[in-house]
C-alpha cells in the first residue's frame, strides 16, 4: 500500500462511527486497516463511539442539537489585543478598494450612503442579516467562530505595522499605510452602510469596536458556500449585541483570495503569514 493510499484511507475514519461511508469507501478503509497498524488501532479506539452511534435515535437527536446556533457566537475581546499590524508591502500590492461609509439611520432606505464617498458604480446589495436567507442561491454555512484574540496576537508580530487608513479613491476607497488621516466620521446610531468594491480579494469580516474595548462581529453573520460578499456593492448591517455600548471604530479584515472565512485553520494560517489586511475607520461621537 502506498503512503498516499494510507493517507486517503485515514481521511475516512471519521465517517466510520457515523455510518457515513459509502460501500466503496468502507471497503477502502477496511482494506487499508488490514495493512496498517496505526489505522487499525484508530478503528479499535473508535469502536466505543461506533457502538454509541449505533442508536439511530441518538444520532438524530444530536443532529437536532447541532441545528441550533451555538452560544457565544459574538466575538468579544479586549481592545489592547487589537494592535493591528499590516505589512508595509501590502500597500504596494493592495488590491482591495474598500470603503466604510456611515449611514444615516434607517430612514434612508436602500442604503443612503454619502454619495461623495460611495462608489457610484457599485451595485447596491442589501445584505441586512434578516434578509440574507431567501435570495441568494447556494447552501448556507455558519460562520466559524474564530479565536480572534489569538489571531490578533499573531498579527501583532508582523513588523512594520502602522494603522491602516482608508482614503477616497476612484473605485470606492483605497487602503494604504499612509499616515494621513481621513478624519473621523460620525458614529452611526443604528446602521452602517459599507461600500465594498474589491478588485481582487477574499472573504471579508467586519467588526465593530465598542467604547468599552470589546468588539462585536458586524458582518457577515452567515456566509455562503460560493462567496461571503457580493463582487462589489453596498451592504447594510445593523450593529447588534451592543447592549448600550457605543461603537468607536469599525475594522474590516480582508482575507487573501482562496482563504475560506469558515475554515478556522486557513484563517489562522493567513494571520500567521501576515496575509490578512485590516482596515480601520474611527468613528466620532
Amino acid at each position: 500500500m502506498t503512503d498516499q493510499t494510507r493517507e486517503d484511507a485515514r481521511m475516512l475514519v471519521g465517517g466510520h462511527a457515523t455510518r457515513t461511508l459509502a460501500p466503496e469507501e468502507r471497503r477502502a478503509l477496511y482494506a487499508a486497516a488490514l495493512e496498517d497498524d496505526q489505522l487499525f488501532a484508530e478503528l479499535v479506539d473508535e469502536q466505543p463511539l461506533y457502538d454509541l452511534l449505533e442508536d439511530r435515535d441518538l444520532r438524530l437527536d444530536l443532529a437536532a442539537d447541532l441545528k441550533e446556533t451555538p452560544r457565544g457566537r459574538v466575538l468579544a475581546w479586549r481592545l489592547p489585543q487589537w494592535q493591528i499590524a499590516v505589512p508595509l508591502a501590502a500597500a504596494a500590492t493592495l488590491v482591495i478598494a474598500a470603503g466604510v461609509v456611515l449611514l444615516q439611520p434607517p430612514s434612508t432606505p436602500g442604503g443612503g450612503a454619502d454619495s461623495t464617498l460611495a462608489d457610484d458604480t457599485a451595485r447596491p446589495v442589501d445584505l441586512e442579516p434578516a434578509e440574507l436567507t431567501p435570495e441568494q442561491p447556494g447552501p448556507e454555512r455558519q460562520l466559524a467562530v474564530l479565536d480572534l484574540p489569538a489571531l490578533i496576537a499573531t498579527a501583532d508580530a508582523v513588523p512594520g505595522g502602522s494603522e491602516l487608513q482608508i482614503e477616497s479613491g476612484d473605485s470606492g476607497f483605497r487602503a494604504s499605510t499612509s499616515s494621513k488621516s481621513v478624519g473621523d466620521s460620525p458614529a452611526p446610531s443604528s446602521g452602517l452602510a459599507i461600500t465594498i468594491a474589491p478588485v481582487e480579494g477574499g472573504d471579508v469580516l467586519l467588526v465593530g469596536i465598542a467604547d468599552d474595548g470589546t468588539a462585536v462581529q458586524l458582518y457577515p453573520e452567515r456566509v455562503r458556500a460560493a462567496e461571503s460578499l457580493p463582487p462589489g456593492g453596498q451592504v447594510r448591517v445593523t450593529p447588534r449585541n451592543l447592549d448600550g455600548r457605543r461603537l468607536v471604530s469599525v475594522r474590516l479584515l480582508v482575507l487573501p483570495p482562496g482563504v475560506d472565512i469558515a475554515d478556522d485553520d486557513a484563517v489562522r494560517d493567513a494571520f500567521a503569514n501576515g496575509a490578512v489586511t485590516v482596515l480601520e475607520r474611527r468613528l466620532s461621537r
Binding site: 443532529a63 447541532l66 441545528k67 451555538p70 454555512r141 455558519q142 466559524a144 467562530v145
Partner: peptide, 20 residues
C-alpha cells in the same frame, strides 16, 4: 455541542445520515 462553523454542519449532516 461545542463544535462550531463548518464542523458543526459537517457533523450534523453525517448524523442525519448523509454520505460524503
Amino acid at each position: 455541542r461545542q463544535l462550531d462553523g463548518r464542523c458543526r454542519n459537517v457533523f450534523r449532516l453525517k448524523l442525519e445520515g448523509r454520505s460524503f
